[in-house]
């Protein structure tokens, strides 16, 4: 029997992380930069202290940096770690420079291609990039085989680069809408998430709102990913805060800047951030409340309305 289930999968973030995230897991992370990072689920992983994690995705940003800063990550395998205009992901940067964490570099298209191979159940996939770059010349000590270059069997004299499929143990994503059984609707840019979700052995999705299955049955072209790939649905308003969720709220530049300040300073100042904003908040709703609550969020919602 396959693992596909049409059961109701709604549960709390705490239960979802307890059930599906384990020490040593390869965790796929959705979101990109200031958009739809699965911050609520990352907070929960940190609170539960799941460790020796490998984080994988394309643009790993604040949610990655939080887990690295909490000392839970042994390796990042991705296209990039950074926060664009807001600067470096300083915990990531420092953990690599101080050799507390391994980094396995690819580029974005290679990562998404690896997820594409994973989601289609094939072992590897060709890409046109990476050749001639040093990304091929260096790999993490723990990596078995990063790539292979072969002669194109159909075009004599041409080289083809193959990269292995990536199937994370568990993926965390934050989306706009999902139903109780795990049908998912992503609005706005989808980044690498459709491939990532389908490639993962299990997926926890947090969402702004739970909608009816009837919605998907009446608007089936809106289904970004059907329930087959989803194992837990966590209802969490503002679950990507301080990053944005398209259609719902913009990112909070003030909080991101504050986080960056703490992350850049490191040491006690960073520990204080984690204590106050992660460990010190029993639920993610408490965190939202601490960051300005309804008033702040109304403001970010209005900013989003202006964008639409």
């Amino acid at each position: 029997m396959s693992k596909v289930s049409k059961e109701v999968k709604v549960m709390s973030a705490q239960e979802a992380v307890e059930r599906f995230v384990f020490d040593g897991a390869i965790i796929g992370i959705g979101g990109q930069n200031v958009s739809r990072c699965a911050v609520a689920l990352a907070h929960e992983i940190i609170k539960q202290g799941k460790k020796d994690l490998t984080l994988t995705g394309c643009n790993l940003s604040i949610h990655m940096d939080l887990m690295v800063g909490a000392g839970l990550v042994k390796k990042c395998e991705s296209g990039l770690g950074g926060q664009g205009k807001f600067g470096a992901t300083f915990q990531f940067k420092r953990a690599i420079e101080e050799k507390r964490m391994e980094a396995e570099d690819y580029d974005h298209l290679t990562m998404v291609s690896r997820f594409l191979a994973g989601e289609m159940g094939i072992p590897f996939i060709p890409v046109r990039g990476l050749m001639g770059s040093d990304i091929l010349n260096y790999q993490a000590a723990s990596t078995k085989k990063k790539f292979e270059i072969i002669n194109d069997p159909w075009n004599q004299g041409e080289k083809v680069l193959l990269v292995p499929a990536m199937e994370p143990d568990v993926t965390i994503v934050h989306v706009q809408k999902a139903d109780e059984i795990g049908n998912v609707l992503i609005q706005g840019i989808a980044s690498h998430e459709p491939e990532l979700i389908r490639a993962s052995k299990t997926t926890i999705v947090s969402c702004e709102e739970i909608i009816s299955t009837q919605f998907f049955r009446s608007n089936s072209d809106y289904t970004t990913v059907p329930y087959h790939y989803i194992d837990a649905v966590v209802e969490q308003r503002f679950g990507a805060y301080p990053t944005a969720t398209y259609g719902y709220y913009s990112f909070d530049a003030d909080h991101i800047n504050y986080y960056q300040q703490c992350s850049r300073a490191g040491g006690e100042e960073y520990k204080k951030y984690l204590d106050e904003y992660v460990y010190g908040c029993e639920t993610f709703d408490d965190f939202i409340e601490k960051c300005g609550g309804v008033k702040k969020l109304n403001h970010l919602q209005r900013e989003m309305v202006r964008l639409m």
């Binding site: 990109q32 930069n33 200031v34 958009s35 394309c58 643009n59 926060q83 664009g84 205009k85 807001f86 974005h108 298209l109 998404v112 291609s113 594409l116 890409v127 046109r128 990039g129 609005q187 706005g188 840019i189 989808a190 980044s191 690498h192 998430e193 459709p194 491939e195 944005a244 398209y246 913009s250 990112f251 530049a253 989003m304 964008l307």
Partner: peptide, 28 residues
Amino acid sequence: PFTVADPIIGYRAIKTGSLREVLGCLVQ
């Protein structure tokens, strides 16, 4: 926009798709 993932990046787009559609199906 602030970043390539700023929500404004999809403003009045013909399609808001995925990374694979842009880097794969257009660039590559």
